[in-house]
Amino acid sequence: MKPANELELAEAIRDAARDVGGALRIVGGGTRAIGPAPAGVVLETAGLSGISLYEPGALTIVAGAGTPLAEVEAELAKGGQRLPFEVPDLRRLLGREGVSTIGGVVAANASGPRRIQAGACRDSLIGVRFVDGAGTVIKNGGRVMKNVTGYDLVKLMAGSHGCLGVLSEVAFKVLPRPEVEATLICDVLDPVAAVRAMSQALGSPFEVTGAAYVGGQVRLRIEGMAGSVAYRIGALAKLLGAGWDVVEAGPSAALWVAIRDVQAFAGQLGAVWRISVKPSDMPQVLTGLGTAQTVCDWGGGLIWARVEEPLDVRGLIGQIGGHATLMRADAGCATVPAFQPEAPAIAALTAGLRAKFDPRGILNPGLMG
């Protein structure tokens, strides 16, 4: 099924809800799906496409959930603006094809390196329209920032992977594109020293918009007006001490695209895990991962790991604290759930939300436990 508008979407879901055993597999562009595909009739959102409002002066854009991400980004570029949270493109990493949609970005709460400064996708999302599992159209938030009121279903829908409702429209606050960017790099073999350097940079007044540790190298990004970036890069290098080099313009941007999209793992064998921990725990996690290849982002709080040898990643993270998502499985972990099982108290809250928004359990059943 491929509804052409919100009314058709609601009717399709109502029809499924009336069918005994009816279930729907919600598909946007299919570029961010992880884990086994849910059972059910495929319901595509690509027909819900188009930018309905873009007001550069109000820093707001509104689009149908099926609108290609590239279309949204191109329109924003015309106005010298961008989505603040640096959307990752994981198609090569996950072995996916297709066209990423803005609704899929929200459903996955997809957020890149700039999250440490600008927040996640959910933090830029100011309004949603969606259809719940009973076929009811629900609106929350607004089309401009001052109209965000009521219960915060906007944040709830971000990262729900289509299990609570099917998005039909999303509204974002946007930000101006910076004039230039530059990156400080330094070889730091000791992960403890790397975390210390990233924490010092992020705690400085110099507005670092990227802090990563890749291949024994710390990378720190600064963006903005040319004069400001030149001053802040120099001041930050002085604060951190000797050994830092500057990468400017295009080469700097390429460094962060590689981190954002985890390009180092693309086409490589092994399972890929996305691990969230306290930044200070990064060195302990890297020790536990042994020979696994890693890319550490968000000042050490996000660790991508490519694991070829048998390793109980969730057991390791359970001892340290945090959670791990299996983004891409291999033969050794084919039966491992993609999403980490929830603690009993959280699971009870989740069950309550699903009972409210999808009482028949027809939306992406089994996807998130």
Rank of each mutant, 00 (worst) to 15 (best):
R96A: 14
S100E: 15
G103F: 00
V99P: 02
I102K: 09
D89S: 12
E86H: 15
S52D: 01
P88H: 05
T101K: 07
I61A: 06
V62T: 15
V72N: 02
D89E: 15
V106C: 00
I61C: 12
T45V: 06
P36F: 02
E86W: 07
P56Y: 12
G66T: 09
A33W: 07
G95V: 09
V41K: 10
L94K: 03
T45K: 04
A39Y: 02
I61S: 05
V41M: 13
S52T: 15
E97V: 12
D89G: 06
Y54A: 01
G40S: 04
A65P: 13
S111F: 00
T45Q: 10
G104I: 07
A58M: 02
G112D: 06
G29K: 01
A107N: 03
E75T: 10
L93R: 09
A46L: 13
R91Q: 14
K78P: 01
E75K: 04
P36L: 07
L43T: 05
G64F: 07
N109A: 02
N109G: 01
I34G: 08
A110V: 02
V99M: 10
G47W: 11
A37F: 01
V87A: 02
Y54N: 01
I102E: 11
G40A: 02
E55K: 13
V99Y: 06
D89T: 12
P36V: 09
T45E: 08
A108H: 00
V42C: 10
L43D: 13
P38A: 05
G66M: 04
L69K: 02
T45F: 08
K78T: 11
A63K: 14
S52Q: 01
L48F: 12
E44A: 15
P56R: 07
R92T: 06
S111R: 00
T31E: 06
V42N: 14
I102Q: 06
V99C: 01
G28I: 00
S100K: 11
A37M: 08
L53W: 14
S111I: 01
E86C: 05
I34N: 09
V106G: 09
E86L: 13
R32P: 00
G79S: 13
R82V: 02
G98V: 07
R91N: 11
Q81I: 04
I51F: 05
G104N: 09
G64S: 03
T60W: 12
L94Y: 11
A65R: 09
I102A: 03
E97S: 14
E75A: 04
Q81V: 05
G57F: 09
E75N: 02
F85W: 14
A39E: 14
G30A: 03
L48C: 14
I34A: 02
A70K: 10
L93A: 15
